[in-house]
Amino acid sequence: MNVLTDNWSTYWHGFLGTLWLTLVSAALALVLGVVIAGFRVSPVKPLRAFGTGWVTVLRNTPLTLLFFIVVLGLPRFSITLPFFTFAVLALGCYTSAFVCEALRSGVNTVPAGQGEAARSLGMTFGQTLSLVVMPQAYRAVIAPLGSVMIALAKNTAIAGSFSVVELLGTYRTINELGYSIIWTFVWIAVGYLILTLAISALFNVLERRVAVSR
C-alpha cells in the first residue's frame, strides 16, 4: 500500500497524463473517423479511394512504428511540435481508422431503402447521411466504438516511451526509488482499470439510452 501513498503525486500525474492523452486523442479519432467514414460511403470516387487508403495504411501499421514516423519523420519537414501533440496525432490518426470501420459497419446495418427514400425526396448526400443514415447506424456502433476507445486508452502507454508523461512510464521513477516492482505495476494496472471501466460504464449508459429512444 505504501507504494501508492509514498508515490501518490507521481501516480496522479501519470494518471492525469494518460487521461488527458486519451481524451484528446479520442476527440481527434472521432472527428477524423466520422469524416473518413463519410468519405468511404460517399458517391465521389477520389474520396472513397482516399478513405480506403487512410484506413488501410493506418490500421495495418504497428502503433509504435507510427509513433516513430511522427516523432522522427515530421521534424524532417521542419514540423516540430511538443511530444504530447505528436502522441495525440499518432494515436488519433491510428484510432480514427478503427472508428471509421466501426461506423461503416453501422452504416451497413441501415437498409439501403432508407437512403434511397431520403435521396428520392431530394436530400443531398450530406443530408441523407446526417439526417437518416447515421442516426440509425449509431445504435449498432456504440458497442464496437466502446471497444475501440478502451483500446485507445491502453495504447496511450506507448507514448511513455516518447517522453510523454503517462501512467505506465511512472514505473521507471518508482522503480529507481527501490519500491517493489510487483506492487508498482499493480497500482499502475488499477489506474488503467479505473479509466477503462469508466469508458465501459459510459458506453453502457449510451447503449441503454439508445435502446429507450426507440
Binding site: 431503402g113 427514400a117 425526396l121
Partner: peptide, 25 residues
C-alpha cells in the same frame, strides 16, 4: 448526373417503394 442539381430534381419527382422505406427513427 450527380450532386445538388440531381437532388433538386428528385424533389420534383416523388417515389413510393415496394418496402415503404419510411424513416424508422
Amino acid at each position: 448526373a450527380e450532386g445538388k442539381g440531381l437532388a433538386k430534381l428528385r424533389a420534383e419527382v416523388g417515389m413510393v417503394f415496394q418496402s415503404f422505406n419510411l424513416f424508422a427513427h
